[in-house]
């Protein structure tokens, strides 16, 4: 290596920059609570929210728990979503409703049901969609339900590995309509069979809003522990 020092502006080299860094990921804990100087900005919102979330909107006659392959919460959640879409299609009704066990985030305890309880059950702003699938895709859903040891369904049963619809004859159609959420339609929880979709209709309603409406309407929540999925 040869080092040369050049004279008088033959070449311009004005500076050399070096950059070094230090890092720490700082956990936010109680340690920082001592002054709490902006809590006054939050507290009016918190009070308003709590007031609303503590409002009693229904009564649960028993505890609603989610289960695999079946559970009272699975049935209640899918029933209210399915029923809300029964009159939404021209000349037809959706074949069944499919949600996911993982998406039901909280049980409903026996006794008073608050608005906050439904928010805890369904915190996501997922929207209801009606997805049209070709009849051959039904086999993929059957396989999926078996592999997952069941997921919440309404309007259908799974027995001996086959789905039967309660309200729509399978034989006369080349496609069927599933009520679900936009999250699952987009492949959430590996529901990849929705990629086969022929058409999608957005209901323009959130699952949670429909659940709230249904709870208020029922007054006493309808407890149903029907075994809709039977896996041999």
């Amino acid at each position: 290596m040869t080092l040369l020092i050049c004279g008088a502006g033959l070449l311009a080299c004005s500076s050399v920059n070096t950059l070094t860094f230090e890092n720490v990921q700082i956990p936010i804990t109680k340690e920082y609570e001592q002054f709490n100087s902006i809590d006054s900005l939050i507290s009016p919102y918190r009070s308003e929210l709590n007031k609303e979330m503590l409002e009693i909107i229904a009564v649960a006659p028993k505890g609603f728990d989610k289960g695999k392959p079946n559970g009272a919460l699975n049935n209640w959640s899918t029933d209210v979503i399915y029923n809300s879409q029964l009159d939404k299609m021209d000349n037809s009704i959706p074949s069944f409703c499919l949600l996911n066990w993982g998406g039901l985030r909280n049980s409903i305890s026996k006794g008073d049901v608050t608005l906050g309880d439904i928010f805890k059950l369904m915190p996501f702003d997922n929207e209801i969609v009606i997805v049209e699938l070709p009849m051959p895709s039904l086999g993929k859903i059957e396989e999926y339900l078996i592999s997952r040891n069941g997921e919440p369904i309404a309007g259908a049963f799974l027995k001996q590995g086959k789905i039967s619809f309660l309200n729509v004859p399978k034989e006369s159609h080349s496609s069927f309509f599933v009520v679900t959420s936009d999250y699952l339609m987009n492949g959430g929880d590996n529901m990849n069979f929705f990629e086969d979709r022929i058409s999608t209709t957005y209901a323009g309603e959130l699952l949670r809003d429909v659940m709230i409406f249904a709870a208020e309407k029922q007054g006493t929540l309808i407890w149903n522990n029907e075994q809709r999925i039977i896996i041999e």
Binding site: L4, I5, C6, G9, C13, V16, L19, F21, Q25, I28
Partner: peptide, 26 residues
Amino acid sequence: AGINVGRIDFEFDQKIFAKRDVIIVE
């Protein structure tokens, strides 16, 4: 969820030297 805040401290070292004092390395 705001559980952690990341902190990165950068230090810039600028060594300024006159334009005529260019160093060439071959």
